[in-house]
Write a protein that binds this DNA or RNA. Structure first.
Lengths: 355, 355
DNA sequence: CACAACTTCGTGTGCGCACACGTAAAAATA
DNA sequence: TATTTTTACGTGTGCGCACACGAAGTTGTG
């Protein structure tokens, strides 16, 4: 690893001059600049990030705004863990991360938390733009103050965000369609179960459904897809009778598609019914869903690697702040197929060289 | 982030003394040592890895011994790329990586490359222990010289290796069984196609087969599983007629299981036959296999994340050398199910904060 | 009591880089 | 020509840490 000092010696200048050239600062004649640039290229000079971050005294704060989670809906736990991991890693680089949360069902708490967030004067923001309209007002402030921000999990366009970190929902639905077809025979029916309450994540879920349907349409498959919409997933009794009567009426249903992270509820219901259904495809590897998978109540879970998404959001924004390298506008995590047989071992942690 | 200097001030000692306590070096009285330890704990002190690696002048060399690859069998390309990525990342930490390769079919080249490798006086070794007997002699030298080494991809026990980085082959075969069952009806037959030439990777492949068979046995499924062993996968004509006649004789076969990375060859053959087979499960996401997947000639590929394996091998060994933190004895990468619909986008690169 | 040997601790330097500051020489202006 | 201004560079310091060196204070030995 060639150093600035060595380059300086080769070019018969001082390290300071080389430093100026590297950072495109003014105060160097064209002639020497060109000479130094040539030498840099020749020796394939790369700044030592280690030394660089030690020398850079500039501090950054990244603020994160996530929906909060509880035991019943723990989806947002994983992204948060990914964020925490990234936070630990980049601490020594002078980047601090502050996390704020809000109630998914309450736009007001979203706005309030955002205001609180702004008070910390962050140099970068990660936000899950759950509420479309409210987001516009808030991101406009960020644009005005020239604070870069990225969207996590929910893709909105035309808001001026630096990047979107999430999944391709349509594609994941399309994949679900393929998996469903592989399980079913040509004349089996399908049941898609929606939740009417998932307004905040509406985009992702409807795109999953579209992708799913498109798979069958594109391949000219003639399986009938029934739909039911459930008002309240938590009203156990009602959900149960609801589904039960539906299944009795439609005995050809052999596959159930639940395009949200509450699949385990449906799975638990189904498994207690007499007229059970062999195949169920759900989304997101939450603890509850994982349990249902292990108990053979769910066939496939489609995971979007939420941990990685959180991690990457922080990572890409940090790289932008530190090195001014903009991330790609879309960072899509891989769509993972999880079955009982390949559930990732949660104990296995990957350690970074930095920790 | 509290620094050593600050801790020193709090404890009324010099930074040097704190440094001694942190590294358990001698020369500090029990009394002050305890006091300092308490303060360190109280303030949750963590060494700044950035500054540490800059200050540490000790240099390490890790030597890697991999099978080489060509266009026909490109399996080892991915691990190598993972190794290269890790190499770039840890360069500034004073760890260098040197790669050596050998011919998978030639034990002599294995021994020779190993000898060459030893000449570079590495402080750590990553090796794919393709040849069992030969490996024993060579790792004994490493043990004698107290050079830590990890096994990549092939698990041998009783060799004194620091860690094994790879996959759980049995489990991946078991998973294949599950996927196959989901696709098939109760009275469909299966064909498992072995390659007699895969001696060097024999362990992994036979374990896959065992896992596959075990799934059907455990679940008391009565699908008949036929086996054929092919001498030379490259003898196109012979393979084709071979399989063709077999399939004609056994018209109930609707699923094919190929427990090695050459599935694409079988897939290509099958697709040209009149009596085609709908489901094919293979292993490893090589370029050829990916193409066959895209062309709908393969249903599922089981991937072992070879890139990550290479990366992790270097990473864990580096952590051991730098920080003396031993990795877990088994680092098993997740077993990934890949279909045409969720093939990972190869262009999407994940950038570390270090690069 | 003198001197050695050991214990316990402080000091100084440098890793590679960013950046503020200083200083010559060249160019512009009076 | 004398001066100010500008251009083009060199120098020095510190980021947090590891580690070599040295200097007190303490104990042991004759």
């Amino acid at each position: 690893m060639i150093t600035i000092k060595e380059i300086a010696k080769l070019a018969n200048v001082s390290p300071g001059t080389v430093d100026r050239v590297i950072h495109d600062r003014e105060g160097v004649s064209k002639k020497t600049s060109d000479r130094i640039k040539a030498i840099l290229k020749e020796h394939n000079f790369k700044v030592n990030r280690i030394a660089q971050s030690l020398a850079m005294k500039k501090k950054y704060t990244i603020a994160v705004l996530l929906p909060d989670y509880d035991t019943e809906n723990s989806f947002w736990k994983s992204p948060l863990e990914g964020i925490e991991k990234a936070k630990e890693e980049i601490r020594s680089f002078g980047v601090d991360v502050e996390t704020f949360s809000f109630d998914q069902k309450n736009p007001k708490s979203y706005i309030e938390s955002f205001a609180e967030l702004l008070n910390t004067n962050p140099q970068g923001v990660v936000v899950v733009p759950t509420f479309k309209k409210e987001t516009k007002n808030l991101t406009d402030i960020l644009l005005q103050e020239n604070i870069p921000f990225v969207f996590l999990n929910i893709a909105l366009s035309g808001y001026g965000n630096l990047s979107f970190i999430g999944q391709d929902s349509f594609k994941s639905g399309y994949l679900s369609g393929k998996l469903m077809r592989l399980c079913l025979n040509d004349d089996d029916d399908i049941l898609t179960i929606h939740s009417r309450l998932n307004l905040s994540n509406f985009n992702n879920i409807s795109q999953r459904t579209e992708g799913f349907d498109y798979y069958f349409k594109e391949n000219k498959l003639r399986n009938t897809n029934h739909y039911i919409e459930i008002e309240d997933f938590w009203d156990t009794k009602k959900v149960k009778t609801n589904i039960s009567t539906f299944l009795r009426r439609e005995p050809k249903i052999r596959g159930i598609f639940v395009p949200n992270s509450r699949s385990y509820i449906i799975a638990d219901h189904i498994s207690t019914l007499r007229n059970s259904v062999p195949f169920l495809i759900g989304f997101d590897l939450t603890d509850h869903n994982a349990q249902a998978l292990v108990d053979d109540k769910i066939t496939f879970l489609i995971s979007q690697k939420p941990f990685q998404q959180g991690y990457r959001a922080i990572n890409s924004l940090s790289r932008f702040l530190l090195y001014n390298t903009p991330p790609s506008t879309e960072i899509l995590s891989s769509i993972e197929i999880v079955t009982k047989e390949n559930i990732p071992d949660h104990r296995q942690k990957q350690h970074s060289i930095l920790l």
